[in-house]
Amino acid sequence: MQQDKQPAYRPVVFRDRSAGYAFLTRSTAGSEQTIEWDDGETYPVVDVEISSESHPFYTGKARTLDSEGRIDRFERRYGGQRPDASA
Rank of each mutant, 00 (worst) to 15 (best):
G80V: 01
T64P: 01
A85E: 09
P11C: 12
R76S: 08
I71A: 03
G20E: 07
Y78L: 13
A29E: 13
W37M: 05
K61A: 07
G80P: 03
E68A: 15
D84G: 02
S27V: 02
V45F: 01
Q3W: 09
S86N: 09
S67R: 11
D16F: 02
Y58I: 00
F14C: 05
G69S: 14
V48G: 03
A8G: 05
D84V: 13
Y9M: 10
P83I: 01
S67F: 02
D47H: 15
Q3S: 15
K5L: 06
E49R: 04
E68S: 14
Q81E: 09
S86H: 06
R26I: 12
R17E: 14
S51P: 02
D47C: 08
G80L: 10
A22F: 10
T42W: 09
R63P: 01
V12W: 06
Q6E: 12
D39S: 12
R73G: 01
D84H: 03
T42C: 10
Y21D: 01
Q2Y: 12
H55I: 01
R73E: 04
F14T: 00
I50V: 13
A19W: 02
D38I: 13
P7I: 07
H55L: 04
G60P: 07
Y21E: 03
D4A: 06
T25F: 02
R76T: 00
R17S: 15
P83L: 06
V12Y: 09
W37Y: 11
A22R: 02
S54V: 04
A29D: 15
P11I: 07
W37P: 00
